[in-house]
Write a protein that binds this DNA or RNA. Structure first.
Lengths: 297, 297
DNA sequence: ACGATAATTCCTTATTCCGGAATTTAGTGT
DNA sequence: ACACTAAATTCCGGAATAAGGAATTATCGT
């Protein structure tokens, strides 16, 4: 979590959330002493902050009785936040349209560190729906949405993230090196979409397009996923591409990515993901393609 | 949200969360002035608290530019909290077993005010899965899990909640009066489980059992749901009852509902939900059946 | 463009939080 | 069972910080 510390900000509040951030990064219950180490605050301060949040049921005691972990109130507020967040509210109708058009499962996720978090999900009526729920996470490098976001983030920022990745092959096709990932990201920038070709799970394919915030940086993505069992042809990549891109652009526009309404370049494109990787170029945002910031916003 | 205000707690932190609670109750973006009204704090204080949380991306600006709403960091932390929360961690293996045994969709939810919030959900492989996601909410009175929790809460507390309900008929069978609900809750207390007989959606049935915390109060529930299309017989209620109850008891026990391990009374019961409402009694917690507090914990 | 309403900044006072040390509790090994 | 260790919790004076009023600036509606 960011450190703002402008004076004119309330330090105790920042500290409270910093402790929550510690818990969140550790991803397990923590004892007082561990909070002290991780946060750098003095023991007494941590103790009182934690006690305060315990009282509010933002935290609860962990299994080892002396540890702290997230409490029900935080979950309640968090889930309410999810449903009220601008991204989801603006994206939902677009997602519904996308699902109705494709008849496949569509997802919305946002990046959080090296991972993407699923924040909304509309299921197809077909039987095999990969067992993913809202709140689940995937590493960026093996998810179409992760790659789409990475490709359209500020280049330095993306670079830094890629450096931290710990690649693990989920299938034979999973990208497992930084070099391969960067090459792929170039393709994605050319095409405006990212695909997932059984890189996460055998038989599972998807197409994702990035969603931009008001600063012009990609922070979220939409995708459509399907199984090779039902749609064996690689043509499906091309088939879904314009639809997904159009949906993503619509969401970006509504998210306040400024005058995006004036760029009617979303339909009728033909990108060949048909072979092993795209060749025809369809530049989406032509600026610098690296270090874009505030582009068209 | 509760007011603790014990000295020895950090007030600024409480205030920060109180503002979040305002936002959460309002369920829409709020302007500074509205926070002032709702919280009772002075304008300057609210302003700085909000500004602080904006800086941390716990909040973001709403569409009307001057309003505040939940931000991405809160969603990230909230979803991480969800996955790390003790309830879910302890319940997950039990839920998986339950799903494998029943082959139907199973849900875990907790109560939040007048609503239940879905916190985990394992889907059946059948086609028709009601379009509900983690984070979604339902009114307590038209959900099996809601009724199960209500039936096994502290009686005064339940009474108070029922008073606040605003009944709306979702189907012909939806419970729409406080009197009918209380009658049903009595049945539920006798049987140890709550059923949903197309009260939320035509063709949708379910059985739910309550989960108790260490104070002996029900705060969450598990259920199994299915469609009448696939299982038309009312016998399914009885069929799933012992399994669901056993699962709920196992979760309660693991949640620290004390010496529950010593009560092997969960299997082999036969409750007749077969007709319109149960008749055979199977008392589950025999104490007072009202105003229980700390029972068996 | 103008008026009204709400947001933001500034400054002083008093409160609240910080942090060291003392005390209690819990956990561990013999 | 008992002592010993390590961590959690309480206490208190000093100092930084948040509160609150008033003044200023921005924003919205007409």
């Amino acid at each position: 979590m960011k450190q703002t510390s402008d004076r004119e900000s309330i330090k105790s509040v920042e500290k409270g959330f910093r402790l929550l951030a510690c818990l969140y990064q550790a991803n397990r219950p923590l004892a007082l002493e561990e909070f002290v180490t991780l946060s750098g605050y003095k023991k007494t301060s941590c103790f009182r902050l934690l006690k305060t949040m315990l009282g509010l049921e933002i935290l609860e005691r962990g299994p080892n009785s002396k540890t702290y972990q997230f409490g029900p109130q935080l979950v309640s507020i968090g889930l309410a936040a999810l449903k009220n967040m601008s991204l989801i509210k603006t994206a939902l109708p677009v997602l519904q349209a996308l699902r109705n058009e494709t008849h496949e499962t569509v997802n919305l996720s946002m990046r959080d560190g090296n991972e993407i978090v699923f924040v909304e999900r509309l299921m197809s009526n077909y039987i095999v729906n990969p067992n993913i729920n809202v709140g689940d996470r995937l590493p960026v490098y093996c998810a179409s949405m992760g790659k789409a976001i990475l490709a359209f983030m500020r280049a330095e920022h993306a670079e830094e993230l890629i450096g931290q990745l710990n690649f693990q092959a989920k299938t034979k096709r999973t990208i497992t090196t930084a070099a391969a990932l960067k090459k792929e990201l170039n393709e994605i920038r050319k095409n405006g979409v990212a695909i997932n070709d059984e890189e996460l799970e055998k038989g599972l394919r998807g197409v994702a397009a990035p969603i931009f915030n008001h600063t012009g940086e990609a922070f979220a993505a939409v995708n459509v996923v399907w199984t090779t069992a039902r749609h064996p042809s690689r043509k499906m990549f091309d088939r879904f591409t314009p639809t997904v891109v159009a949906a993503a652009e619509k969401i970006s526009a509504r998210m306040g990515c400024g005058s995006n309404t004036s760029s009617p370049r979303s339909s009728g494109c033909a990108v060949s993901w048909g072979k092993s990787s795209g060749r025809k170029t369809r530049r989406r945002r032509t600026e610098t393609d690296s270090g874009r910031r505030g582009a068209s916003c």
